[in-house]
């Protein structure tokens, strides 16, 4: 039982990180229907920014965190402007390939600048684990979980209350109609990328606190997992991304703990496949059949 609870907590920890990254994925997908393959690499940018600012320049932690989130936002906006915007009216698959190109560029660029060798991520906090009877929960786990939930709630609030949030929803429903209503679609898309990549910045922080090694390919694994989480929950739907992230994290953790770690990837993909076969638009997605 204790073992099970421990594995569950492990799963929640990983799941929160996936969920946070998946949120950004889902927002971008929702608005321009693009699988942004470079999203994971934005994570890597955030991680390196923290390493550079803290380990090399010795800035205070709080400043470094803010700078790293801003760096992610900047990269996201610049990438959108120069790589994706020119392709907005092209077939989706062209944008997809461009996104793959951007991802390769970021990884190889980072390799050129920082060398391919992994760098240690600085220790940001060293709080003792929380002891609940025989259960031991590390502080990072609690922090990660809390940050993920807060981000999710505030994002949902933002989207449903603020003008820009409503504009995002409108543009993702129907870009042309939204423009006719006087919404500046370009600004809205930029804002979506900014928020999505900012979340990736937060994700980078939490990810590296859990796995404190930074390398140029750091982003590809959480990127693909978050993408799966987003699809699992219903891509384009924010609570779906969250749900997908947690399911994925817990499924991975329990498979590794009880079945076989060799099979954890197979189980993850298996769950995805089964869900998609029965609910083609993901767990929370609504199947929209094509109007005839």
């Amino acid at each position: 039982m204790i073992l099970f609870l421990n594995q569950l907590i492990n799963g929640l920890h990983v799941g929160s990180i996936y969920a946070l990254i998946a949120l950004g994925y889902t927002m971008v997908y929702g608005i321009i229907k693009l699988i942004n393959f470079a999203h994971g690499d934005i994570l890597m940018i955030g991680a390196y920014t923290i390493v550079v600012t803290i380990s090399f320049m010795g800035w205070p932690i709080a400043v470094a965190i803010i700078v790293s989130i801003l760096a992610c936002v900047l990269f996201g906006v610049v990438i959108e402007r120069f790589a994706y915007k020119p392709l907005r009216s092209s077939p989706k698959i062209s944008s997809l390939i461009t996104a793959i190109g951007v991802s390769m560029l970021l990884q190889n660029g980072a390799q050129l600048i920082f060398s391919p060798n992994p760098k240690p991520f600085p220790i940001l906090l060293n709080a003792p684990p929380l002891n609940l009877g025989p259960l031991q929960i590390s502080f990072t786990t609690i922090l990660t979980f809390a940050v993920a939930i807060i981000s999710m709630i505030s994002l949902q609030g933002f989207v449903s209350t603020f003008k820009m949030g409503k504009a995002m929803r409108a543009v993702s429903e129907d870009m042309d109609a939204a423009q006719l209503m006087g919404i500046n679609a370009n600004h809205t898309i930029t804002a979506t990328f900014a928020i999505g990549c900012g979340l990736a910045g937060v994700g980078a922080l939490l990810y590296c606190m859990a796995y404190p090694t930074v390398s140029p390919t750091l982003g590809s694994l959480p990127g693909i997992k978050a993408f799966i989480a987003a699809v699992l929950g219903g891509i384009g739907i924010m609570p779906g991304a969250m749900l997908g992230g947690f399911i994925l994290g817990i499924a991975e953790s329990l498979t590794k703990g009880y079945i076989s770690s060799q099979l954890s990837d197979a189980v993850v993909y298996g769950i995805l496949i089964i869900v998609l076969l029965f609910k083609p638009a993901g767990l929370l997605g609504k199947s929209v059949s094509e109007k005839v």
Binding site: A83, L87, S94, T98, I100, G101, V102, M104, N108, Q111
Partner: peptide, 13 residues
């Protein structure tokens, strides 16, 4: 690989 990815992005755009 940097040149390769740049070439890819440029060609797609």
């Amino acid at each position: 690989m940097v040149l390769y990815s740049l070439a890819l992005i440029t060609m797609m755009i």
